[in-house]
């Protein structure tokens, strides 16, 4: 899976919003996602397609419905490329501190 596809998919704010929605509630239908977004159904379908191509979203059939799941593995692959296993705790601690101070 190419990292270019992942970065391209993440470059768009609407697609990041879709990932936020799936992060908050995993396994949603197209209809549920459309209900949360100010976009046409076609636009949401297109964005989901680009996210699926980058493997950031996985669609699984359940009966007649298709449920969409966020797949964070490609983002983890990117993190692993530049963040060492032992630095991760420190980076996480700094991120937690930032979050706490900004709340």
């Amino acid at each position: 899976m190419s990292m270019d596809l992942v970065f391209r998919a993440l470059a768009d704010p609407s697609r990041r919003r879709l990932l936020d929605l799936l992060h908050a509630k995993n396994g949603q239908t197209l209809g549920e996602l459309c209900g949360e977004l100010d976009m046409t159904r076609q636009a949401v379908t297109k964005h989901l397609g680009i996210l699926e191509e980058a493997s950031l979203v996985v669609a699984q059939k359940r009966g007649r419905e298709k449920l969409h799941y966020i797949n964070p593995v490609p983002i983890n692959d990117i993190a692993d490329r530049w963040i060492g296993k032992f630095e991760r705790h420190r980076v996480r601690a700094l991120a937690d501190l930032k979050k706490m101070l900004e709340e």
Binding site: M1, N26, G27, S55, V58, Y69, N71, V73, D77
Partner: peptide, 10 residues
């Protein structure tokens, strides 16, 4: 139902 799906290509 709580569910996660993870995919990787190797």
């Amino acid at each position: 139902m709580s569910k996660f799906v993870y995919v990787t290509y190797i």
